[in-house]
Design a binder for these strands. Structure first.
Length: 766
DNA sequence: ACCGGCTCATTTTTT
DNA sequence: ATGAGCCGGT
């Protein structure tokens, strides 16, 4: 069969057109479930299969590892079906892994040693703390996390410390620049890059070495970017650079699924694509093949409430299917029980297998209760994302040993493990080594060696340090001479880490041992998959960039649980979205910010993403009472539920007759005056009444938002100057509530207004 | 230097 | 509610 015929069979006209259009800039606006991945893979297969370009001349960039893996998997399958041979590895990457691939080749040009390490956010936070201590900046007054996020923001905009200085009109003060500069120096010294650096350094590399850029520009004759709506500025710049020579850039996206603005995603990138490439062809994929008509219509009705959209309508010729199940429960336990029981009942009735069910939630913390209930009913489940495997202490420890073995300059890794398991090197000693290293501008590893040689410490301490250094020297040797799997065993053995854990009889230690075994499995699996390329470096890379080990063995039959964010790009026959409550989803934070609507719109897009994952049946559940931070919260049902047309919904509650049902208006879908009417646009006072409030009457008694409740010994009143450790100085411009619920709104120097519950916020008068 | 108890912050979302 | 970091005692 002819290649084109093969790759376009079973495609609808716009899909077909997208596959056939391979030269020139192309914008594909792909609605949820419209066969986007299919189009991308078939398009790539067409280009390769027809011999228009060889496999390594096509670059495909996705956002998550999961998407990249899925795409790669499908590509190999199609290419195999086509009988096309692929010798080299395909260039299907996430932005970050693409950059690593480039940097491994060329980072020495930017004066790094070949085996640079990658810092995850907790490593980079440690680095920031270190830098702050050196600069003598008080971490109570200036929380390290703020510097971290500001530096990250700067990098996502492609700004170096100097660039930041020039552009620092808003929010970026001198202190940030100072910390940023010192941080960069330290990172360089540690021969390591953080997540943002991966992009930033690639950009720098391309700018400083035009011939390197040129090589890649010419190499990648065809470039495809998936989830283009989620690209941030630096990613945008990289793509623009790479596409310059051939201009064969195909971007795929859906502005309705842009959910990563908090990490710098700029929705303008997709909205302005036609400005960047005036000759661009635009193809819309609007037919949904995934979900039942009721689900498509419900999701469409919700997303319609957003204003900033391209004109795109999702439709389907699928059958209506079941109604959307809206379920009210008393609290989060009942909610979880409902979900678990429903799954059990459905399975017993023969509706699919556990694999067909997914539970989505807004925050990872919500998974706990669900896990409990699923376990009670003996339902197998697996968590995707969440507490990352590699963030567990024992895993990080092991990885630190391995990292340090190939990158002795990594002070953060060294500090982590120099006394693990306890070998009598205490805080004071470590501080001294650190100081010594700073003085001489050398790494702590070298500093430790020197300190021993020069008898800086007493004999006992020197001996302990020497023992550690000897251990590390040995590991350094083993790292290069042994296979990855064997090296891991050597590390486990020689560090006596396992021995120490085995002595400890506590259940925690037991769990840690199991985790270390799991790491062993992961390494074995990795070695099996990669063969000769399973080097220590590539493994550490994988551990830094890929977060869920679950993806390694996904064959088991189990219910999948994940956050709404991770759910993007996936689909399941049966989907539960739990915790559909105001202040949780949409999150309280999105409701509180000064710039108002935009944040809620992103939450709405998240709701849209979640709903459109479901193929056959969708449940939306909420609890009337939920414990958050050990406090009872009573939140009304999410506005997103109310935005679904009544006729698409089947409403059920388990708690009829409870007194406060009518107060938040939801015991019956029909006679509730709030349903179907967006009264949420009302004053924020209304919202806050609902929050943390046990009875409506009490809430009613609250003074108005603008009202003055500063009497009666309230510590803050209107006009007062205050300082917040995170946001800096500001002026109180409104107060509300009383006692435990006393809140103040503060306008900060950059004109943003934040609201704080005084009891929790660290506000001080100035 | 190590350990245990205490306080405090933490809950958006990911590479 | 829970875990991480801090302080003070040993």
């Amino acid at each position: 069969m002819d290649v084109l015929e093969f790759v376009t069979k079973n495609l609808n006209p716009p899909q077909k057109e997208a596959v056939e259009t391979f030269s020139g800039p192309l914008l594909i606006l792909a609605g949820a479930g419209s066969g986007k991945t299919r189009v991308l893979t078939h398009r790539m297969a067409n280009i390769i299969g027809q011999g228009i370009a060889s496999p390594d001349e096509v670059l495909c960039v996705t956002f998550t590892n999961k998407a990249a893996k899925e795409m790669e998997h499908r590509m190999y399958k199609i290419l195999a079906d086509l009988g096309a041979r692929v010798h080299s590895q395909l260039w299907i990457n996430t932005f970050h892994s693409f950059c690593v691939r480039v940097l491994r080749q060329h980072l020495t040009l930017l004066d790094y040693k070949p085996y640079f390490g990658i810092y995850d956010s907790s490593d980079s936070l440690s680095q920031i703390k270190k830098v702050m201590a050196a600069l003598d900046i008080n971490d109570k007054m200036y929380p390290p996390k703020n510097f971290q996020s500001r530096i990250s923001q700067a990098k996502m905009l492609g700004l170096s410390p100097e660039g930041l200085e020039k552009n620092s009109r808003r929010l970026l003060d001198a202190k940030t620049v100072e910390v940023y500069k010192a941080y960069e120096r330290e990172m360089k010294k540690a021969n390591s890059l953080d997540f943002d650096d991966l992009l930033m350094k690639t950009y720098e590399l391309f700018r400083m070495y035009p011939d390197v850029l040129k090589m890649y520009q010419e190499k990648f004759r065809f470039i495809m970017v998936d989830e283009y709506q989620d690209t941030n500025h630096i990613q945008y710049l990289i793509v623009q650079m790479l596409a310059k020579a051939h201009r064969n850039l195909c971007v795929v996206g859906d502005e309705d699924q842009s959910i990563y603005s908090w990490r710098g995603a700029d929705i303008k990138n997709i909205l302005d694509f036609e400005k960047d490439f005036p000759e661009a062809k635009v193809i819309k994929l609007e037919e949904n093949y995934r979900s039942s008509a009721n689900i498509v219509n419900a999701a469409t009705a919700v997303i319609k409430n957003n204003s900033e959209r391209k004109d795109k309508t999702l439709f389907t010729s699928n059958e209506s299917g079941d109604l959307i199940q809206v379920r009210e429960e008393k609290n989060e336990y009942d909610e979880a029980r409902f979900v678990a029981k429903t799954i059990q009942t459905m399975i017993n009735e023969g509706s699919g297998s556990y694999n067909d069910y997914a539970i989505f939630y807004r925050t990872n913390a919500q998974s706990r209760v669900l896990e409990e209930q699923l376990r009670t009913l003996g339902i197998p489940y697996r968590l995707v994302g969440g507490v990352r495997f590699y963030e567990r202490m024992e895993i990080k420890d092991m990885l630190s040993f391995m990292k340090l073995a190939i990158n002795p300059a990594d002070d953060i890794a060294l500090k982590r493990i120099i006394n693990v398991p306890a070998r009598g090197i205490g805080k004071t000693t470590i501080e001294k080594i650190e100081e010594y290293a700073a003085q001489q501008n050398i790494s702590m590893y070298i500093a430790a060696q020197k300190a021993c040689d020069e008898r800086v410490f007493n004999a006992g301490t020197t001996g302990k340090i020497r023992r550690f250094l000897t251990l590390m020297d040995e590991l350094q040797g083993s790292a290069t001479s042994f296979k990855l799997v064997d090296f891991y065993h050597i590390v486990l053995d020689r560090t006596e880490y396992l021995t120490a854990l085995k002595k400890d009889e506590s259940p925690e230690a037991q769990a840690r041992i199991e985790n270390l075994e799991e790491l062993d499995n992961a390494i074995a699996q990795f070695a099996k998959e990669r063969g000769d390329e399973a080097t220590l470096t590539s493994f550490l890379e994988e551990m830094a960039l890929v977060n869920d080990v679950d993806s390694l063995d996904q064959e088991q039959n189990s219910v999948t649980m994940m956050t709404l964010h991770i759910s993007k790009g996936l689909e399941f026959p049966y989907v539960f979205v739990v915790g559909m409550e105001e202040n949780l989803f949409p999150s309280a934070r999105s409701l509180d910010t000064g710039d108002g609507e935009e944040d809620v719109q992103e939450e709405r897009r998240l709701a849209y993403v979640g709903m459109t994952r479901a193929r056959q049946k969708l449940w939306l559940t909420y609890a009337k009472m939920r414990r958050v931070w050990g406090q009872e919260q009573f939140n009304p049902p999410s506005r997103f539920i109310k935005e679904i047309p009544e006729e698409l919904v089947e409403f059920k509650t388990s708690s009829e007759g409870l007194r406060f049902v009518s107060k938040y208006g939801s015991s019956s879908y029909d006679n509730d005056e709030n349903f179907g009417r967006p009264r949420w646009g009302a004053s924020s006072a209304d919202r806050n009444r609902a929050r943390n409030t046990e009875s409506y009457d009490e809430a009613q008694a609250f003074p108005d938002y603008e009202g003055d409740s500063s009497g009666g010994g309230a510590p803050f009143s209107k006009g007062m100057r205050v300082r917040h450790p995170t946001f800096g100085a500001g002026t109180v411009y409104a107060t509300e509530g009383a006692g435990e619920n006393f809140k103040v709104s503060v306008m900060f120097t950059d004109n943003t207004v934040k609201k704080f519950v005084v009891k929790y916020a660290r506000l001080e008068r100035i």
